[in-house]
Design a protein around this nucleic acid. Structure first.
Lengths: 356, 356
DNA sequence: CTGTTAGCGCATTCAG
DNA sequence: CTGAATGCGCTAACAG
């Protein structure tokens, strides 16, 4: 019973032509009686239209390719959830490829995806280059990027600069004047440059001094920010925290929540209380930030919404609709327990419930 | 320049027949000279073989469908990483569908995937039923399940019973005699039943008393275990912790690390030190367990390996090879700071680095 | 409204 | 070794 029933058999069984069955399957134009016959025939045979034959004709695959830096990441998970939220109802399937944080593999994946016949591509990039822009040209498919920005390419991302600025201004307002920014490599434009620059501007400082190189150039200044480069993982942040602490800032700002978690861990090990001894903040708004102690103050991004917007942008590109970027990417500051207001005497904060 | 170059054009440009080009693309049988001509023609035209036409002929899609309960989860991320690790090198693409923890949607997704022409399906299930078994029959595709087990179906999963047993025996050995198991609904066979039962057996207790219902029936017993049902999220675990604490156990065992994290948070809020006042353990081995304070003692699963095995099982099913389940699923106990050895006087543990 | 007629782009017989 | 011929299963004109 498994010899792949085709439209032809259904037609014969229903006593109509193949075209009628095909019409039944797509937009109507079938009389009520025939329609009924076909319906029964399909039910009896258990007919399933052949995806590949259909795509071969229509030149529409209803497939969207997604390129992700990795699979086991909180942000990627949220992003995918958002993407799925708009693609699924629209009848699109998702073909996933992993770039493993490599720009070359990102390009390879895009090519591979195009060859697989996807209608459009969505890339959560780790770094956009001229090569990306060229490839987009030659692909002749709608391609939307996330995570990074690049002139001339369609990019949907959170506003890293604004996020940094928000945090910087907030801390400054609480009386902090010496911060250490635990950032990532500048090769990551979004997190490594924009987020940091936004923070510096928000904090009201021109440039950051290098913490590893030595003491603040001018400690008497109005305010200053030290910089330490770390990786995205707990461990590398943990390992660099001694140096951060040595600079004696009133607050340490991790470029991501994961970095901040590594920092908190180190401080705890050293018996340095947060936020009494030093405040700590992050970026991202990962759920775990709400359950660690002290609960992490952070700028939360709505990555799920970013995913939805990006997916919608791909769909819009498919239908030549003007893409509606719909205003700035949403974010908000979550004030929790890891930051001290220097304008007030320290009061051990009553740990409240879980603030997601 | 974008009018979809086909095999026909390549043939003309190379001065050979379509068949020769086709042969060049697949298994050889082309003379050295022709081969060279075709190669150049392909390079010039930038020819890309049409995926759908090819699949229409060969009846092989090189596509594997994956059904996941959700995207934004640590375990799912690891699992996908593992899956990709074997599917990618094998030349298979991944088509992803999300069941949103619904058994019905799980079934729908499997049907949909089959209709998309995938060669095989891998399902990270939230609960297997007769309906699943029936569907697998009618699908006539290799289908492999993860997360749950069901007689007659191919299932690759961690050994939840063994994990529970390991933890139970470990705690017992440290002198714990009264535990509260914070578990999930029994509708989740793997986590809700097996893991709990394993724990009970490992702890050496017949049945668990209901913590919400009242005090231990026989507190004088050799050992006893209370049970509280909670959800998979921080919050519901947090909310139930008061009741757990009220039972005065020496250890609270969360059925997952997330549950344990919620519990830790509550205990901290109440100023109840872990592990002085009470020990806490989890299951999963999520990375964050290593950075929270106190670092969480847990049974770690290698979900990535599970993903690899499951993917390999699908591939084996495709080629009618006997599937090699390759021994028990790996797991190991990670002893960190959240458990107290009741056999020794309490010594505040020197918090060490990050033990992943 | 319906059946007939053509292919979509490719792989694969089958004679050369 | 190679080319001509034949569909894979389906959709899309085209005349009825």
């Amino acid at each position: 019973m498994d010899h792949k029933v085709t439209i032809k058999e259904v037609a014969e069984l229903a006593g109509v032509s193949k075209s009628t069955v095909s019409r039944y399957l797509n937009r109507g134009y079938v009389s009520e009686e025939k329609r009924e016959l076909v319906r029964q025939a399909i039910a009896q045979t258990g007919f399933k239209s052949n995806f590949f034959a259909k795509r071969l004709k229509t030149k529409e695959s209803k497939l969207i390719g997604i390129v992700l830096p990795r699979m086991d990441s909180v942000t990627v998970g949220k992003l995918l959830t958002g993407i799925n939220r708009v693609l699924d109802p629209a009848g699109y399937q998702v073909l996933v490829q992993v770039s493993q944080l490599s720009q070359r593999r990102e390009l390879d994946a895009m090519r591979s995806l195009q060859q697989q016949g996807v209608d459009g591509i969505l890339v959560d990039s780790v770094g956009l280059t001229d090569a990306h822009a060229e490839l987009v040209q030659e692909l002749t498919l709608p391609v939307v990027f996330t995570g990074q920005e690049y002139a001339g390419l369609t990019c949907i991302k959170v506003d890293d600069y604004a996020a940094g600025h928000l945090m910087g201004a907030y801390l400054r307002q609480l009386g902090h004047r010496h911060a250490v920014f635990a950032g990532v490599s500048e090769s990551d434009k979004a997190v490594g440059c924009e987020r940091k620059q936004g923070f510096l501007d928000g904090f009201g400082v021109q440039t950051a001094y290098d913490v590893l190189a030595g003491a603040p150039a001018a400690a008497a200044e109005e305010a200053c920010v030290g910089f330490v480069e770390t990786g995205f993982d707990f461990l590398s942040a943990y390992d660099k925290t001694a140096a951060m602490w040595a600079a004696q800032p009133s607050v340490i700002v991790g470029a991501t929540d994961n970095i901040s978690l590594g920092i908190l861990r180190y401080l705890h090990k050293r018996g340095l209380y947060v936020p009494e001894a030093v405040s700590v903040t992050g970026f991202g708004g990962y759920d775990v930030g709400a359950v660690v102690y002290p609960a992490l103050t952070t700028v939360a991004f709505d990555f799920e919404l970013v995913g939805m917007k990006a997916a919608q942008a791909v769909l819009d590109g498919l239908h030549d609709e003007p893409l509606n970027l719909g205003g700035p990417a949403p974010m908000h500051l979550i004030q929790r327990e890891s930051v001290r207001d220097l304008g007030k005497p320290f009061v051990p904060e009553q740990s409240t419930g879980i603030t997601l």
